[in-house]
């Protein structure tokens, strides 16, 4: 039964009478509940939703892990122990290129997902490859930055601030590297096995992972590099 035609107040009154505390058992808007997403009384969700949701939960836990490294950086920001300050080690130009590479890689990752959705093997692979290439550029730039700093005697062993800096940025770099390994594996799987159901599920997860890394990088380039370069 729909409530169309009734004044909204009457419909609301009826809803309250039927389910005074609105505690569920029934969707509020009177529409048929959507099946296959695991909500309400509709039974188990489809595998695609389950996989995506489980991975989403994993990503949240990963972001909590990053938040600890952010907290450590925030706490140790001034613990330079007489060594270089943040402003001394930031190279804005390199950070800008790194940011551009990672943002573009997020974009191409999204395009590869669009290609996956229309089951276009070639475009999926091309965009995945571009994603990996941009990720590689990012990792190499970061490695260059670390080597560069090390050559100037700026290592994590120097001070608490540098420890927190290398730890946070390095952890993100490790994630991007691991993502690159995963991406290579995924490309091989897509090539050999095509768009089987579980391969597509993994592509969804990879897509989520890569975007999440970009979100973390937004935090890093803002808090570590840009705000760090201010003082």
């Amino acid at each position: 039964m729909t409530d169309t035609g009734l004044p909204a107040s009457v419909a609301a009154l009826r809803r309250v009478r039927e389910d005074p505390h609105r505690l569920g058992h029934r969707p509020h808007d009177g529409r048929e509940p959507v099946r296959g997403i695991g909500m309400g009384t509709t039974g188990p969700a489809h595998k695609r939703i389950i996989v995506g949701y489980g991975f989403w939960i994993f990503l949240l836990s990963d972001i909590v892990m990053f938040s600890c490294f952010f907290a450590a950086f925030a706490v140790q920001r001034d613990a330079t122990a007489g060594g270089p300050k943040m402003a001394d080690i930031v190279d804005l130009q390199r950070v800008a290129i790194e940011t551009a590479a990672l943002l573009l890689s997020s974009y191409t990752c999204m395009l590869s997902f669009a290609a996956t959705n229309v089951r276009n093997l070639l475009l999926t692979q091309v965009f995945l490859f571009l994603t990996g290439l941009l990720g590689l550029v990012f990792v190499l730039l970061e490695a260059w930055e670390f080597i560069d700093l090390a050559n100037r005697g700026i290592t994590p062993q120097r001070s608490g601030m540098l420890t927190a800096f290398f730890g946070l940025v390095g952890l993100h770099g490790v994630h991007v590297t691991a993502g690159g390994l995963w991406l290579a594996t995924m490309m091989a799987q897509v090539q050999v096995k095509g768009f089987r159901r579980h391969i597509v599920h993994r592509l969804i997860c990879f897509n989520l992972f890569w975007h999440a890394l970009d979100i973390v990088w937004i935090g890093i380039f803002t808090v570590v590099y840009l705000i760090g370069s201010l003082s």
Binding site: V34, R35, G36, I37, A45, H46, K47, R48, I49, L103, L104, Y107, M110, L111, F113, A114, A115, N117, V118, R119, N120, R197, V200
Partner: peptide, 24 residues
């Protein structure tokens, strides 16, 4: 059937590309 309503895998890629463009 392996997708929920409103999430049709076979739909045109345009929707995703559009989102990607706006996001970028």
């Amino acid at each position: 059937e392996d997708h929920a309503p409103g999430d049709e895998p076979q739909e045109a890629a345009g929707h995703w590309v559009l989102n990607a463009n706006i996001g970028l």
